[in-house]
Simulated scan of single mutants.
Amino acid sequence: MISIDEMAQVGMHFGHQARKWNPRMAPYIYTEKNGIHIIDLIKTYYFLKQVCKFLTESAFQGKTFLFVGTKKQASRLIAKTALQANSFYVNQRWLGGMLTNWKTIKTSILKLNELETREKNGELKTLPKKEAAACKKEKDRLQKYLGGLKNMTKIPDIVIIVGQPEELNAVKECKKLGLTTITILDTDCDPNLADYFVPANDDSVASIQLLLNLFLESIQRGQNQYIEKQKKVDLQKRSVKKVKNS
Rank of each mutant, 00 (worst) to 15 (best):
K136M: 08
N101M: 04
S58K: 14
F47D: 04
I36S: 02
V240I: 15
K129A: 15
T31R: 11
S108A: 07
A8L: 15
D140N: 15
L146S: 06
M7E: 01
W102K: 04
L212N: 09
L127N: 02
P128C: 10
F215E: 09
V159E: 09
S87G: 05
G148S: 01
V90M: 04
M152I: 10
E116S: 09
N192V: 07
I161N: 10
A194K: 07
T104R: 11
K175G: 14
Q92G: 00
Q209F: 09
E123K: 06
S204Q: 04
A134D: 10
Q84T: 00
T56N: 12
C189I: 01
K106Q: 15
K244N: 13
L168T: 11
K106V: 01
N169R: 05
D188C: 02
N86D: 12
I36T: 14
T56A: 14
K137W: 01
A82Y: 00
L83Q: 13
P156V: 05
L211G: 02
G62H: 02
W94I: 14
R19D: 09
K106L: 13
L83D: 06
D140L: 15
K53E: 10
H13M: 09
N86Q: 04
E131H: 00
N201A: 07
K120Q: 15
R19H: 12
A132E: 13
L210M: 15
P156M: 02
E57A: 11
R19G: 02
N121F: 00
V171R: 03
F215R: 01
M152Y: 09
G122N: 10
Q230T: 05
E138K: 15
T181I: 09
